[in-house]
Amino acid sequence: MKGMGIIVVKVSQIIAPVIFLFGLYVIVHGHLSPGGGFAGGVIMASAFILQILANGAILPKLRHEEHGLEFLESAAILGFLILAGLGLIISGSFVFFANFINRGVVGQLISAGFIPIENIIVGMEVCAAIATIFIALVVFKDEVSE
């Protein structure tokens, strides 16, 4: 896949980190404000997608990238399941998804027990999944045109 002109590349280089940071913000504040893991993950993935679109990419490199993302995706889901399972074991009430961490004060950043941790994991998963889908489409298109 070919990249774009110098102006697009430079602007995207400036914007992409900001988008990424905003995605992180949305994820971390998921239990306090609108948004959360899914929305933040999509925003983060869009920073990656912007970079690939602007700079272009070489197929073997993209495939390598895809393997890494697949690993991240599986690890995130596994983490989510383990966290839910820990609730089953630690809380003592044998409840799956039990919120076993101290919930803190409502409105503070570190509160709501393990919900922020779950949000971060969901964010990782969604970001990896959306980027994987995009890369799969790019790889497919390049393979067809070859």
Partner: peptide, 20 residues
Amino acid sequence: NSLIPLFIVVPLGSAFIMAI
């Protein structure tokens, strides 16, 4: 009762352990 979620956790968990 607490064993019921295992029906979903075991296949779902093994799918992603396999993936890694």
